[in-house]
Amino acid sequence: MTVEFWAFLFRWLHVLSGVMWIGLLWYFNFVQIPNMGKIPDEQKPAISKVIAPAALFWFRWGAMATIITGLILAALNDYLWNALALGLAGSMKGAHITAIGFGMWLGAIMWFNVWFIIWPNQKRALGLVEADADTKKKSARIAMLTSRLNTMLSIPMLFAMVSAQNPVAYG
């Protein structure tokens, strides 16, 4: 098996897990959050106790699989450190290295937000761990705003990731 084969395999796995992650991120932001207010109170537990915990499981592990396969892919392509240096230092330079580097940093920030901000706050907000009513409310707000931040970051992140595959786009 050549390194090209493994790079192809990991790019495929990276896109699969990325769709799982960002697909669910967009589900939360475009479908669930904007419509919670329209659901009668007695029906809300169907979302908060069943749907949201299941979606959050695939969401956070999708994020984990995406960053792991992404780092492996970058290493296989031999541009991991050059890209993380945004093409400013190291042996590889060029707009596509800078672009993929920006994408990688944005993705890494988003992964951090998922595991260290959104998930701990959602556990309190959804009642998966004990918290008083005030803490629950605050946690739900922090989780929502961080989820929105990740939705915002997903737009330039995907632009950087996809454009890096088309070096001609940068002339």
């Binding site: 475009f30 707009a95 672009a99 920006f102 705003l145 915002m152 970051l153 737009i155 330039p156 940068y170």
Partner: peptide, 30 residues
């Protein structure tokens, strides 16, 4: 003041603006 991320259209708008800023930055660096 309300956080602009509380509005979904603002979130998308900010994302597009950030994309344009990054493209200009990539162009400037290289």
């Amino acid at each position: 003041m309300k956080n602009p991320l509380e509005s979904l259209p603002n979130t998308i708008g900010l994302g597009i603006v950030l994309t344009i800023v990054l493209v200009i930055l990539v162009k400037a660096i290289n």
